[in-house]
Amino acid sequence: MAIFKRLVAVLALAALGGCATLSEPDQQVVLVQTIQDNREVAGIGCVLTNDAGRWFVTTPGRVSVRKSAGKLWVDCKRSGAGVGQDVVDSRANAGALMGNVVLTAGLGYLVDKRTGAGFEYPDTLTVLMRRPGGYVEDPVDEVASNALY
Results as ranks from 00 to 15, higher is better:
6 R>E: 08
14 A>F: 10
14 A>Y: 07
14 A>C: 15
15 A>V: 15
22 L>P: 04
23 S>W: 05
27 Q>Y: 09
28 Q>V: 12
28 Q>H: 10
30 V>Y: 09
31 L>R: 15
31 L>V: 13
33 Q>N: 09
33 Q>E: 14
35 I>V: 14
36 Q>H: 12
38 N>A: 15
41 V>A: 05
43 G>T: 06
45 G>S: 13
46 C>S: 02
46 C>I: 02
46 C>V: 04
47 V>M: 03
52 A>I: 00
54 R>S: 15
56 F>P: 00
58 T>S: 11
65 V>W: 06
66 R>P: 10
68 S>C: 03
72 L>K: 10
74 V>E: 01
74 V>Q: 00
75 D>I: 01
75 D>Q: 06
77 K>S: 10
81 A>N: 07
82 G>I: 12
84 G>S: 05
84 G>R: 04
85 Q>N: 13
86 D>L: 11
91 R>H: 07
93 N>P: 01
94 A>Q: 08
96 A>M: 04
97 L>F: 11
97 L>P: 02
98 M>D: 04
102 V>G: 02
110 L>W: 14
111 V>Q: 04
112 D>I: 09
119 F>C: 08
121 Y>C: 06
121 Y>G: 04
130 R>Q: 15
130 R>G: 00
132 P>A: 12
132 P>M: 13
136 V>Q: 09
141 D>A: 10
142 E>K: 11
146 N>C: 00
147 A>N: 08
